[in-house]
Structures are given as C-alpha cells and as structure tokens.
Design a protein around this nucleic acid. Sequence first.
DNA 1: CTTAGTGCAAAACCTTTGCAACTCT
DNA 2: AGAGTTGCAAAGGTTTTGCACTAAG
Lengths: 148, 148
Amino acid sequence: MQMDMTAIRQKFQEKQYKFTPQRQTILQAFADHGDRHLSAEEVHGIVKQKTADIGLATVYRTLEILSELDILQKNDFGDGRNRYEVSAANMTHHHHHLICLSCHAVKEFEDDLLETLECAIAKKSDFLIVDHHLKFYGYCQDCRTKHE
Amino acid sequence: MQMDMTAIRQKFQEKQYKFTPQRQTILQAFADHGDRHLSAEEVHGIVKQKTADIGLATVYRTLEILSELDILQKNDFGDGRNRYEVSAANMTHHHHHLICLSCHAVKEFEDDLLETLECAIAKKSDFLIVDHHLKFYGYCQDCRTKHE
DNA sequence: CTTAGTGCAAAACCTTTGCAACTCT
DNA sequence: AGAGTTGCAAAGGTTTTGCACTAAG
C-alpha cells in the first residue's frame, strides 16, 4: 500500500512531532500490511522482526499520534483490543466492516452512499461531522455451514 | 422506559437462565435510566444505591447475558469501557450515535434508511446480517463555540 | 542545545475466572 | 435436590505512565 510520505511528514511538522526512525518503521508496517487490521501487539511483532527493537509503549504512543493525525483509524471489532488501519481520509472510497459474531472474521465493503445521509444528519443535529463508521454484524458463510 | 418483562422472562427461560433478583435489579436500572449509556461501573453504582449490594462481577456477567439475549446492546464509544443501552430490537426505530470527538458527548438520531443498504450488502457478501451500528464522529455545537 | 521521544518496568484499568457458599426452579 | 448463580478476591490482558536516558530539529 502506498502512502504519501511527504504529506505525512508535513502533518508531523504541523504539530511539531518528530519524525523519528521508530515512527517511520511503524508507519512502514502499515505500508507493508495495509490490508490488515493490526493490533498494537501485532505491530510490535512486525517491527521487531524487521529491524529495531521498539518498545511496546512506543508502539502505543505512536499509534495514538497516527490516529490523532488521521493517518490511521482506530477500530474496535469486539475482540478486546484496538485495531488500526490506514485511515479512510487517505483512501478514495470509504469502506466499512462486516464482522462475524462467531469467528470474528472481518470483511470489508465499499460505500459511497452514506454521504447523503451524513449531510442530512449534520444539518439537523448541529454536529460538524468529520467521519463515520458503519459496522454490520452477522455470521459468515463458513460459520453458517459449520453450524449445520 | 418501559420494558416487556413477560417477553424478557421468556427469553431467560428459553436459555434456562434464572431470573434472579440481582438480574431483575440490573434490568430495573435500565428501565430507570434507559436514556443513558451505562457502563458496568455505573450500573453497579446505581444498583448499590438502590438496595442490594450486588458484586461487580455479577454486573458484568449479567450485562453479558442481557447482550446475548439481545435485551441490551453493547457499545464502544472510545472512552475505554463498554457502555450498554436497551437494544434496538426492543425499539420501534433503529437509532445511531453522533459522538463528539472533543467532549465525548453522545447524541442519538433515528434512522430507517439503512435497511435497504443492509439487504444489498447481505446479498453480495455471503453474510447473514443480524445487526448494524452506525456512528458519526464530529464536534458538537458547544465545543465548536467554545473553541472560537 | 533544547525539547521531545524512547525503553523499561511498574501501575492503572477494565474485565474475566476460580471457588466455596448459596438460591432459584 | 440440583443446576445455575453469587461474591469475593485473584488473575488476565490491554493500555498508560514515571523516569532516567537518548536523539531529533
């Protein structure tokens, strides 16, 4: 997955955050595994294999910053830990999640239909809406066939 | 908020769960505060004031059961704990949440438009969809005026 | 140089679990 | 009577924090 490093570096500068090697490495982990929803522990595992021995605390602190800068999106899929993915703001399409209540598999689907609803809600509610998350819960094909 | 106790009692029987005084008290807490999104700790506080001294572990176990029976809905609004409210299944309209990123206020809005989308997704994705959660993130009126 | 970031270990937090005593059905 | 439930305390797992040390701008 490609990321606009110039734009990211700029976001760091705006907030006067330093673009340290550790932070770059963590960002690289998402460039390499942009398709997955990584937990802090998983990110820690990936960067550890790769090169440096980055502390878990640093991973947490970096994920926090990357979420704040809207580079990553923090997700809770109900498995007891937060999971991160490259933010919707950096993608052409919004996408949402289908979560299997049985095996916790997460499938994605694209969506452009919600913008209309978002505008309508914003007008009625006095909220300045900057993002939305839509999750569908159910049972995936595999679990349904197994269960029979 | 009114709840159909007969229906609830029946759901308990179907799964052979006992309808103990503790569970009734916890349910009552939601009848009394059905408008709020209660955390386990808050429920514990409410029932403790009220009468019995119910253990926190029991609260957690009961909330788990009530979610499983689809009487309550478990929510994560990003403040580090789960919050429960009377389930959409027991309401006439689905409702969703507007979450203020600044003060964590949660505002609700109703929605009936999503059923169409849900059907379309279900067909394409091989998922048996049983529920959906839609959250909008932004900044509420109060925080926007304060910030200026 | 100065301010922010790192690593480690300890602490904080929410949630779950083991177990003996207890109580609905 | 018997299976399920409770309360307590301890354990579990994730995330945060204090602090001395290090490094980026």
